[in-house]
Nucleic acid binder design. Structure first.
Lengths: 158, 158
DNA sequence: ACTTGTCCTCGAGTCCTCTCGAACTCCTAG
DNA sequence: CTAGGAGTTCGAGAGGACTCGAGGACAAGT
C-alpha cells in the first residue's frame, strides 16, 4: 500500500503537469511534505494522487489555491480542527451552488438568444431587426448587485 | 427612447466600474462606438445597458472578453453573419453546460466529504482516522482527460 | 563513451481582467 | 471666483495560476 510514484507518473495520473506539481508543492498545496529519493527526486504516494484529485476538484469549482492550501494546512495539522475544515467546505459548497445558479441563469439567457437566432434564420429573414442585434438582449436581468463575482479564465492549454 | 447616460449612470446600472467600462470600450466590447458629448465625455444609451448585461452574463459564464469582442464585432457588422453568431453562441452553450457538469461533480465530492466530517463530528470521535484526512478522498474520479480546462478567478473586489 | 530520458532548481514571462493613480478638463452651485 | 464633483487619457501595477527555459545531475541502454 505504499506505491512509489515519480513526478512523471503522478502527473499522468492527475493530469497536472510536472511543472504545476512543483508549483503546487511550493504553494503548500500538499498535505504532507513531498519526500525525496537519494538523488533529490520527488517521491509521491497514492494518497497524494487522491489528495490531488480532490484538490483539482476544489480548484475547478473555483476555490483559490490559497484556500486549498489553507485546507491542506488544517489536514496537516492533524485532528482537532475538524470543525474548521467543515466550515471551509460548507462555505465552498455555498460558493459552488451560487456559481451553478449564475451559470444556469446565463445558460437561460444564451439559450433564449439562440432560439431567437434560430427562428430568424429558419424564417429566412436575412435583413430584419437583426441589423443591430441589440434589441433582443432581453435577458432575465442579472441577480448581480454590486462588485465582481466569479469570473473564470483558462490560461494557456499546453 | 434615446435616454442618455453618463458613464457614472451606466456604471450604476450594470455594476461595472467606470474604469472597467472604459477598459471594455478599449477592448472593443461594445456593439457601437461609444458617442461623446461636446466635452468629450462618453454618452451611452439604454441599449448599451442591455448589451452590457448580456455581455456580463457571457463573461460570468466563462466567455473570454476576446470572444465577447468577436461577437460584438459580428453584431456591429450587421446582417448577414447570423449563422456565425449562432455558432458562437451554441459553442458557448456547450461550454456552459460542460462547466455545470464539472461543477456538479465537484459539488458532489464536496458534499460527500462534508457528510463524512459531519458524521465524525457528531459521533464525537475526535482522534479517529481523521488524523491525516486523506483516506476519505474517495471522490468519484474526475472526468478530466488532459490539459487544464476551466479555472475561475475573481480579481480584486473594489 | 555516448545518447536518451527523467528529474532538479530558479527565475522570468504570460495571460487575463481588471484596478489605480496622476495630472488635467469641464460644468454647476454658491 | 471658487470649490466640488464627475469626466478624460495614459500608463503602470496587481493577483492568480500557471508555463517556460536555461543549465545541470544522474541512471540505464547500446
Amino acid at each position: 500500500m505504499s506505491d512509489v510514484l515519480s513526478i512523471g507518473e503522478i502527473s499522468a495520473q492527475t493530469g497536472l503537469s510536472a511543472h504545476t506539481l512543483r508549483f503546487y508543492e511550493q504553494e503548500n498545496l500538499f498535505v504532507n511534505p513531498v519526500a525525496r529519493d537519494g538523488a533529490g527526486r520527488r517521491v509521491y504516494g497514492s494518497q497524494d494522487v487522491q489528495w490531488l484529485l480532490l484538490a483539482t476538484r476544489l480548484r475547478d469549482s473555483g476555490m483559490p489555491l490559497a484556500e486549498i492550501a489553507r485546507y491542506a494546512g488544517l489536514v496537516r495539522a492533524g485532528a482537532g480542527n475538524e470543525q474548521e475544515r467543515l466550515d471551509l467546505l460548507r462555505e465552498h459548497q455555498d460558493h459552488v451552488r451560487a456559481q451553478m445558479e449564475r451559470l444556469s441563469a446565463s445558460l437561460d439567457a444564451v439559450t433564449a438568444k439562440i432560439s431567437l437566432y434560430e427562428i430568424a434564420l429558419v424564417d429566412g429573414d436575412p435583413q430584419n431587426p437583426w441589423s443591430d442585434g441589440v434589441q433582443d438582449c432581453v435577458v432575465p436581468a442579472p441577480p448581480v448587485r454590486a462588485g465582481r463575482q466569479q469570473p473564470p479564465h483558462p490560461s494557456r492549454r499546453r
